[in-house]
Design a protein around this nucleic acid. Sequence first.
DNA 1: GCACTATTACTCGGATAAACACTGTCCGAGTAAGACGGG
DNA 2: CCCGTCTTACTCGGACAGTGTTTATCCGAGTAATAGTGC
Lengths: 158, 158
Amino acid sequence: MSGGVEWALHCCVVLTSVTEPVPAARLAQLHAVSPSYLAKQLQALSRAGLVRSVQGNAGGYVLTRSPELITVLDVVEAVDGPGPAFSCTEIRQRGPMAAPPQSCTVPCAISRAMAGAEATWRDALRSVSVADLARDVESDYGSGTLAGISAWLGTGGR
Amino acid sequence: MSGGVEWALHCCVVLTSVTEPVPAARLAQLHAVSPSYLAKQLQALSRAGLVRSVQGNAGGYVLTRSPELITVLDVVEAVDGPGPAFSCTEIRQRGPMAAPPQSCTVPCAISRAMAGAEATWRDALRSVSVADLARDVESDYGSGTLAGISAWLGTGGR
DNA sequence: GCACTATTACTCGGATAAACACTGTCCGAGTAAGACGGG
DNA sequence: CCCGTCTTACTCGGACAGTGTTTATCCGAGTAATAGTGC
């Protein structure tokens, strides 16, 4: 799995607590990661419609909707791509003992098993929203943690 | 995900119906795939203890235990590696607003969410055995399908 | 003092290289079967 | 006819290139704030 997913999720959680746009460079130095590469992930989020980009001076990124309505699955699919991780090659239709095409109206048993597992994985990620993550953060590190980060982002605490 | 997982699973299903060792090359031409690369996957299965390799003339691969006791998860972990797909980089401890180490006794909220989803994925794969897959194949393509493949593997049907 | 305009600096966005992992291939070590010869 | 030995051919196992995707980077297009100027 792409490592940028973690960055994107952390950014979404941080963006929960801000109201004004935050530049990608600021988010990058907050997490001490490569600014250029983080920009790429944010562009993916923008293409997926999860965040809105504001150009010009005092621009940056903002969430497009309430954190309750953004699931972890949304972020993962935006960064890693929506396609399934396991793709069936239909090798049952190849070779000397190939299954006839008329028998292949449904996916093969292996593909079904893998697809079912991925479905549960997606369901689990869909059941967690970015707002839930933000709540957990406040619970883990004490209330006011996100407010402090928001303040740091706003002030030029460089 | 590695594409070799699919090949390995098909091989395990096929090996369900044989009693004598089957060479990797024979499995390769059955599925019309690269013999050398399939050998690599089978080596991984051997390292994981799922199949037993028999060297010398009339050698090949055999399952080490009953197909009921081999789960799809076993095969996936053998080929793709046992490590989790999502690995937390602990970026919460980096940057100017880094969380103090004493607050990081438990994994961060994001890591927990991803780990939980992967756990359900693993459970789903663990609940399906290779024997289940073989049963489904017989059900899909008619009883005797695997017997026919076994016969082809045994005879020099080249 | 106010409005308009030109400048300026800052933002995102996509196009461009480097690094890693997956895919594919090869040849050598080891082994069991089979052929051969002797008793 | 049976046993032991030797050859032989076949198997796996790990080491070696090719290719695609992920990671990382850069510079140009566009925009909003800002400073300056005239009324």
